[in-house]
C-alpha cells in the first residue's frame, strides 16, 4: 500500500460506499441546479401569463378601485378586436414590411461579413452590435432629429421632388417602419451571419464548377444552407417588432399607432385592464401560431 500512496491515488477509506452515494446524488443534481431558475420562470413567466388570460376574461365594468370580478367574459375578445382592429392590422403590416426590408438589407450585410470581410470579420461584427450599446429610446429619438422637418434629409428629398414642398417623414408610417427596421436589424443579422459563416466556401466553388451561375449558386446552395439562420433571424426580428410601441409613439402619430399603444393605454391610462389583457393575450396566441407554423414550414426545428 505504501507504493500506492506514494504514486498518488489517495487511499480511500470506504471505497464501496462512494459510487452508490454519488450515483444517486447525480440523479438529483440536475433538478437541484434547475430549481431556482426554473421556479423563477414558472412563477414570473408561466403564472403571469395564466393571470393575463384570466384578466382578459374579467368583467370589464369593474374598476381599479372596486376590483374586477371573474365572469368568463369571452365577449372581451370581439370587443377588443372591434376597438383596436386597425391597430392590430397595422402592427402586423408594419412588422411584416419591416421584416422584408430587414432581410433585403440584412442578408447582404451578413453575407459580406461572413464571406467577404476576411480579417475584418470581427470588427464588422462588433459594428453590427455596437449601435445596440446605446439606449433604445435614445437612438430612436435620434431618428426624430434625422427625420425632422428642418433636417437635411427632408430638405434634400423635397429639393429632388420625392417629397412635396410640405411633405414630411416624421409622423408617417415610413418613419415608424424605418424605426422598426433600424432597431431590430441586428437580431436578424446575427443568426444569419452565424449560419453563413459556417457555410463551406468549397460548396460554392463546387456549384460554380458544376456550371451554376452565381445567381443559381445563391438560390440553390447559399440560400437553402442559410435557412436556419434566416428563420431564426426573421423570428427574432418580427416578434419584438409586432409588440413594439416605442417607434410608433416616438416617430409616428395617432394614425400610425400599433396594438402595443392600445394595450399600453388600456392598462396605464384608460384603466381597462380586461381589454388590454385580451389584446395582449391575442397577440401572443397569434405570434405563437405564426412561430410554430413558420418553423415547421421552413423545415427547421433548430430554433425551438
Amino acid at each position: 500500500m505504501s507504493l500506492l500512496t506514494g504514486v498518488g491515488a489517495r487511499p480511500v477509506s470506504a471505497p464501496d460506499k462512494r459510487p452508490d452515494d454519488s450515483r444517486s446524488r447525480r440523479r438529483w443534481l440536475p433538478y437541484l441546479l434547475l430549481l431556482p431558475g426554473g421556479a423563477w420562470l414558472i412563477l414570473f413567466f408561466i403564472v403571469p401569463t395564466l393571470q393575463l388570460g384570466a384578466t382578459s376574461l374579467y368583467d370589464p365594468t369593474g374598476s381599479v378601485t372596486t376590483g374586477y370580478a371573474m365572469t368568463w367574459e369571452f365577449g372581451n375578445y370581439p370587443d377588443a378586436i372591434a376597438y383596436a382592429g386597425p391597430q392590430i392590422l397595422r402592427s402586423f403590416a408594419y412588422a411584416a414590411i419591416a421584416t422584408v426590408i430587414g432581410i433585403l438589407i440584412g442578408y447582404p450585410l451578413a453575407y459580406a461579413i461572413a464571406q467577404k470581410a476576411g480579417r475584418w470579420k470581427n470588427v464588422l461584427l462588433v459594428c453590427v452590435v455596437a449601435p445596440m450599446f446605446t439606449s433604445f429610446l435614445v437612438r430612436t429619438l435620434a431618428w426624430k432629429t434625422i427625420l425632422s422637418d428642418n433636417g437635411a434629409l427632408v430638405g434634400f428629398l423635397r429639393d429632388v421632388g420625392i417629397l412635396g414642398a410640405d411633405g414630411r417623414l416624421l409622423a408617417t408610417p415610413i418613419a415608424v417602419v424605418l424605426g422598426l427596421t433600424y432597431n431590430f436589424l441586428p437580431f436578424l443579422v446575427l443568426p444569419l451571419y452565424a449560419s453563413l459563416e459556417r457555410l463551406d466556401t468549397r460548396l460554392l466553388e463546387a456549384s460554380g464548377d458544376l456550371y451554376a451561375s452565381p445567381t443559381r449558386t445563391f438560390v440553390k446552395v447559399t440560400l437553402p444552407l442559410s435557412m436556419p439562420g434566416l428563420v431564426a433571424g426573421t423570428l427574432l426580428f418580427f416578434i419584438p417588432a409586432v409588440g413594439d410601441y416605442i417607434n410608433a409613439a416616438l416617430l409616428g402619430n395617432t394614425n400610425t399607432s400599433m396594438v402595443g399603444n392600445v394595450v399600453n393605454s388600456a392598462f396605464l391610462s384608460r384603466q381597462e385592464p380586461p381589454q388590454g389583457a385580451a389584446l395582449s393575450f391575442l397577440l401572443m396566441a397569434i405570434i405563437l401560431a405564426i412561430v410554430f407554423t413558420y418553423v415547421r414550414r421552413a423545415g427547421t426545428d433548430e430554433v425551438v
Binding site: L4, A9, P15
Partner: peptide, 13 residues
C-alpha cells in the same frame, strides 16, 4: 491484489 472496479478516476494509480 487491489480491486479498483468501483474507484473513481482520481482514486486510482
Amino acid at each position: 491484489d487491489r480491486d479498483i472496479t468501483r474507484l473513481r478516476p482520481y482514486q486510482r494509480p
